[in-house]
Design a protein around this nucleic acid. Sequence first.
DNA 1: TTGAAAGCGCTAACAT
DNA 2: ATGTTAGCGCTTTCAA
Lengths: 362, 362
Amino acid sequence: MAERAAKSPTIYDVARAAGVASSTVSRAFARPGRVNAETAEHIRKVAAELGYRANPLARALPTGRTSMISLVIADVTNPFYNEIVRGAQAAALEAGYTTLLTDAQESGAREREALERALTMVDGIVLATSRMSDSAIRMIAKQRPVVVMNRAVTDVPSVVTDNPRGVRRAVEHLGELGHDRITYLAGPEASWADGTRWRALREATHELELHAHRLGPYEPTVAGGAAAAADLMRHPTSAVLAYNDLMAIGLIRALTAAGVRVPDDVSVVGFDNIFAAELVTPALTTVAAPLHAMGQAAVRNLLALTRGARPTTQAPVVLPSQLVVRGSTGHRRRNRTSPASGTTKVSGPALMAATSTVAGSR
Amino acid sequence: MAERAAKSPTIYDVARAAGVASSTVSRAFARPGRVNAETAEHIRKVAAELGYRANPLARALPTGRTSMISLVIADVTNPFYNEIVRGAQAAALEAGYTTLLTDAQESGAREREALERALTMVDGIVLATSRMSDSAIRMIAKQRPVVVMNRAVTDVPSVVTDNPRGVRRAVEHLGELGHDRITYLAGPEASWADGTRWRALREATHELELHAHRLGPYEPTVAGGAAAAADLMRHPTSAVLAYNDLMAIGLIRALTAAGVRVPDDVSVVGFDNIFAAELVTPALTTVAAPLHAMGQAAVRNLLALTRGARPTTQAPVVLPSQLVVRGSTGHRRRNRTSPASGTTKVSGPALMAATSTVAGSR
DNA sequence: TTGAAAGCGCTAACAT
DNA sequence: ATGTTAGCGCTTTCAA
């Protein structure tokens, strides 16, 4: 093992070497305007020679600002968060902030606990798909600025996707393909998005004179989707809207294994457009969320809050969702063995045009 | 917006309320043995009533220990790291450490830069698949304990998977299926694993009297794998070993799109056994790394180092890899259109038994 | 066993 | 524009 270096130079070492007071060194770095240009230059040079790097912890003590933010996600293992994390990281980095990533492991209790530890070290918190109660979140928000994602909590700024619009698109799409009954595969009960999607489905089907059914809740995973297959076969419909892509994928696999063909026998639509959605066979039709943009927006808003900004509105920031039509949806068939009624081949590009790119909701 | 809480209580508030000196409060928390049991109890009670939580930053200043470690990964977007991250988080959490996740975005420069920022705030660093040079890594290791993953760096402790053994298993598997020429699809040149795998492939093919070819390097992504398809069709072999699953998946998709059937025309083996590997069609045969265990082992070793442990050996910790046989590999056919020579149907379970579960290498 | 006091490295008044 | 001097909240000798 290489030996640890002696000790990194402090602000005092630099001050001594440069022949100035430590406060001047401090200013030279934090408030360059408040110091003579030449002196500042000299100090920088000396500091560089000594290899001086300000200790962010020591800086945090008097200022109370750590330049760290906490990003809490429900499950690191869920690919849904990959792009969100990257978007958030990018926004944090560009503002000179460091991100503390916390995995709540789908447990509100663990989330609380982890937050408890991180709370004092961060300037703000992004809760991506929190499993905590609204009141617990509000409690946290009293101590540090908080932005929640995929959820609306009174008095807490949030960033969400336009679920109603996304569901509406999906329903229209399925309706055009001749499906008149749509089953919703529910996700975690603690999930705000789940409630929103189910409500949106009821509204959309009602308006379009279709019927909505509900199965679940299931785990928001491939296994959860597979578990739903049995239930679906007991209460079959020709179209399914799953809480997320993972469940949709699990459902399709279990269905296929049981001899039910997708999309010939049942059309399946997912949510999120995760990485694997276009890799599976059939590729998944899904309501895409702008994952990267959401992570970015959440962090940017959070940083604005830490700088003292007050939200101009109680309304969540709504980012547009988009229907991505792939192979898991197709025309409804009267029965499993007969050929398709009407046009068999669905023109992908034409349907893609039905895609929504709009925002704005309550 | 809810208003921020006034200010969290300090150690002095607790001391005053409990009628003891602040140093006693400090001891009561950090060194319970060094204080009268009753006093300690009393202090705890008072602290709890006040809602006192020690400020980790203030604590870090005099002690020099932050209870934070840094985990640097090459690409947050790459599902390969999901389980590693979770394993690392779990190990850190159980030891009372907080994890700082950093995304290097496949760039050695960005990695250096991010590390520069985090260096002073952490007690140690895990470099998962670093893209930095050996000397840069050694530089970092001079300042803080470092453990590298998937890589061997002189004088720096490391955790790796048994690549030679994994490659050997894959080659044996392909050999048994009748393939005698295997193409390796190379990944990033800065990747240690890439070099190791290619070397292992040469050795294994040599011993088994087969032939190894090499194509690339390509990006270690689905797009990279797709790009390799054209090259492969110019220099065709009946079997391919890809640098990772992402590339393998990309290759299969591009091949399939071009009318080349997998595994009928070409068998493909990947590396890593990422989440999507069993979701794609055909499901991917791949050399599985114990991702979770690796993350855990890396962090545990790192924490041992921070506690002053000195590595007992220069050799990397080697974790076993395993061949997972799925649908992307099959018997070699003499030509594309003729029926298989010999048994057509490959018995999945029988092949699964060929799976390796052993460790140990140099 | 407990208290008093001196820092850890940096910032932020307050002086000059 | 720069220097002086308190702290930030906690730990850690050193005394008592």
